[in-house]
Computed example of a mutant assay.
Amino acid sequence: MKKSGSQESKSPSQLIDARIEELGDWRGQMLSRVRALVKEADPEVVEEWKWRGVPVWEHAGIICTGETYKTVVKLTFAKGAALEDPSGLFNSSLDGNTRRAIDLFESDAINEPALKNLIRAAIDHNQAKSKKKKAPAAARAKAQK
């Protein structure tokens, strides 16, 4: 992304807006649509801008990233390997133990209900993990009383 003004003074949402506008083609449209679906699936989602220009959506941890390449918009789910994918959306990064991705090409239609369900499953997974981390501390505090 070309730097126009100080990126540090812009919010992550503004930086994502700028990326979508800068792309100006099907990738920007696809990223914009995915972004809208993430927000529809989770109105409390937090947008971040990480790793030198990658849109990231978080709720109790990273849900997914939205990377753009010449021929693909890639949604990488941070804990995708732990998620059920009954609709078979994951089509990339299938060999790893942690992440899974969805490569969206120019002519692809998005299975919107399935993607929203996958986003919600990622949030549920993140929340379950954060509860497990908090539980031992709470148990120790209770035991000390």
Rank of each mutant, 00 (worst) to 15 (best):
S9M: 02
S9T: 12
K10C: 13
K10V: 02
K10R: 15
S11Y: 03
S11W: 05
P12D: 05
P12L: 09
P12I: 04
P12S: 09
S13H: 02
S13C: 02
Q14T: 08
Q14C: 10
Q14K: 13
L15I: 00
L15P: 01
I16S: 05
I16N: 03
D17G: 12
D17A: 12
D17H: 09
A18I: 01
A18G: 03
A18E: 12
R19K: 14
R19T: 03
R19V: 00
R19D: 12
I20P: 01
E22A: 15
E22N: 13
L23M: 11
G24C: 12
G24T: 05
G24H: 10
G24K: 07
G24V: 04
G24L: 09
G24P: 11
D25N: 15
W26T: 14
W26K: 15
W26N: 15
R27H: 08
R27F: 11
R27W: 07
G28N: 06
Q29P: 00
Q29S: 12
Q29Y: 01
Q29K: 13
Q29G: 14
Q29T: 09
Q29N: 11
L31V: 11
L31T: 13
S32E: 14
S32T: 10
S32H: 14
S32Q: 15
R33I: 00
R33G: 01
R33Y: 00
R33N: 03
V34K: 05
R35D: 10
A36Q: 15
A36S: 15
L37I: 10
L37E: 08
V38S: 04
K39F: 01
K39H: 10
E40D: 15
E40M: 12
A41L: 05
A41Q: 02
A41V: 05
A41K: 04
D42S: 04
D42C: 10
D42I: 00
P43A: 11
E44T: 01
E44N: 04
